[in-house]
Design a protein around this nucleic acid. Structure first.
Length: 121
DNA sequence: CAAATGACGGGGT
DNA sequence: AACCCCGCCATTT
């Protein structure tokens, strides 16, 4: 297995895991945040092949413009819409308002999460 | 090794 | 807004 790709995988999944409830990020934003610009396709590829046991908020990752990428009519899409609705994210017409729910992690946000700082603050 | 394949993105029409 | 087209990238044919 390719080492650099493996590092990218780790970084990308970390970013996805850090997206707060009620917030969303696009594939491109996740890739850039992970330090692998232009790798938006890789983000989608990884999310499409997640291990059976995972607690990643994959439903918070959307295509450019806030569009739900999963195929129309697929059960996976329904699952995503359901999960989004479950946390107050409206996806009318298969589209989420990035202005309302778009999230850009700050360095501090990531550090706080990575080191689990602020748990009792 | 060339071509095809995607949970993609951006610009142009 | 809806398409189309092309660039992008790891994998698979």
């Amino acid at each position: 297995m390719n080492s650099s790709t493996e590092r990218a995988r780790q970084a990308i999944l970390d970013v996805v895991a850090a997206i707060p409830r009620g917030k969303v990020m696009t594939y491109g934003a996740v890739a850039r945040q992970a330090g692998w610009p232009r790798h938006s396709r890789l983000v989608g590829r990884l999310l499409s092949a997640l291990p059976a046991e995972h607690d990643l908020p994959w439903h918070r990752v959307l295509a450019a413009g806030g569009r739900v990428a999963l195929p129309e009519g697929s059960s996976a899409r329904e699952e995503q819409l359901s999960r989004l609705a479950g946390e107050g994210i409206e996806a009318a017409g298969g589209r989420v308002s990035l202005r309302e729910h778009g999230w850009q992690a700050t360095v501090d946000d990531l550090d706080r999460w990575l080191w689990k700082i602020g748990d009792e603050n």
